[in-house]
Design a protein around this nucleic acid. Sequence first.
RNA 1: CGGGGCGUAGCGUAGCCCGGCUAGCGCGCUUGCUUGGGGUGCAAGAGGUCGCGGGUUCAAAUCCCGCCGCCCCGACCA
Length: 569
Amino acid sequence: MKWTQTLIPTLREAPADAEILSHKLLLRAGLIRKLAGGVYTFLPPGLRALRKVEQIIREEMNRAGAIEVLMPALQPKEIWEQSGRAETAKDVLFKVKDGAQREWFLSPTAEEVITTLAANEINSYRQLPKNFYQVSTKFRDEIRPRFGLMRAKEFIMKDAYSFDASDEGAMASYQKMYDAYTRIFARCGLKAFPVEADTGVIGGNYSHEFMVPAETGENEVVFCEACGYAANIEKATSGIPKTAVREISAAIEKFATPGVVTIEALSKEPYKVPANRQIKTLVYIADSKPIIILMRGDDQLNETKLLAKTGATAVRPATAEEIVPLLGAKPGSLGAVKNVPVDVKVYADERLQGANDMTTGANEDGFHFKNVSIERDIKVSAWHDLRTVAAGEPCVKCGKPLKIRRAIEVGHVFKLGTKYSEKLNATFLDVDGQRKFGVMGCYGIGVTRTLQAVIEQCNDKDGVIWPLSVAPYQVCITPLTVAPESEAMKLAEKFYAELTAKGIDVILDDRDERPGVKFKDADLVGFPIRIALGEKSLAKGEVEIKPRNAALQSVKIENAIETVLALMK
RNA sequence: CGGGGCGUAGCGUAGCCCGGCUAGCGCGCUUGCUUGGGGUGCAAGAGGUCGCGGGUUCAAAUCCCGCCGCCCCGACCA
């Protein structure tokens, strides 16, 4: 490609609405342009890089035995009602009506469509296992699009769905995808690692996310350097000990705490109750029903765990207006010792199991109870791990201190089980003649997000540093004079033809610009290898080869092509 | 949706508090000359409904009201 024939609109300055580095570089390097919030046009070099990521994904999916299909973005409402997700996923669904007022959803994912397909086309265990995948545009009415391609309303996703005859088979399919994902991200030049994950609204019971470490990531990952344990903070547990049991069994006692409404205030004079001897009482609304959650005073509730453990489709903190009539006191004096309505469930964090000599609110403004023994004095409906892990806590597996870092989620694999096959009646006839539900898994990669994650991870002060595998062009030929009869331009054309013939993606910067402009742009867009052809070196029979991330080397003209080929190995 | 911020030429911005504008600057763009190995220099140009609508005023980019859009923090997620 000749630079003057394509469009690479580089910018000296980043538009003010770009906040993070990768977003700025996407815009400055002329890879994308925004049409509206969360909606982007891919410009020629951005599209080329995107296609390369897609190609790597296709190769690895095919290699893992998956088969490519293409499902419609426009999906009938009815199958979403059948799966129940018309309700549970309603916040992210884009809804459209046709001229006959029939309602359609723009696909945010495709479990319903593929399961409908499987229900119709798969009838026998002989056809299993099958793993269908597609690369397509997805639509999600994100509450808040952000950071360019990182979280967009319209984006490209690779989604795959496996169907197996048995749970063991489904595990094997899952493992194949897990391995394929590991290879895909490595081939894209990304340092991505798998972590245990919550399954969220998709459902299922076993899941990993593939994370790219980045300060700008939207996720927090808990990990152990000693044994390799890693989990999303929404899912992570630690080996932190339960609350120490004390050798006293005094009777429960009410005491006045006027104006004290925080854990911290109660830990100070004159009360001096340490946070780890307090029981924090939270009220949440789980699918419109109030529930009480008990946490130790120095612990934080993990709402994702709460959602998972309650089985609700949504939870939110109750407002003061909802709490007062329920418990008879305002937040700050709440407890579960008395005045708890019988139909309100009390979920307690496991760290409080057996705890005694605790202090908690009395459900009476300005009063607390002390000497509380949780199992003696509080009727707990269910014990669960509900706390958020903090850095430094002992690893649940090996006891070494855990660390936490931020990361970008680029892929997610789920073992779904039969949730969708049951809802959409996807059955097959097994070897024993029994009709059974297909055991499913689903596997997503945010393709556009992966592209941005590569940029977020591969850059320097001058611009992007593309890995060879996904660079829009692998080689940029930069003649410093572009007059057609000049030696530099003639040689540039020759190199261009030779490298192109070898299957290499080459761009020839034929713009009549000063060398500085061309060098700056080549660095900004981030081509892995640049060949400069200028009078000074040509006079010595040499050209300059500059890998984007290594030192410049002068080589004889006749050795130039082989040097480039060697660098690309 | 809650909280915070911002909308002035393709991009970055000054001016706004304290009304007086014929809206300034840098980059980019056009033309000519110049220069020719890391964003060359000089000159001449083109380009603006100051987000939109209403109001106050002799006068509004500037003050007031409403709306729209965008960005950041939170709930959501590939």
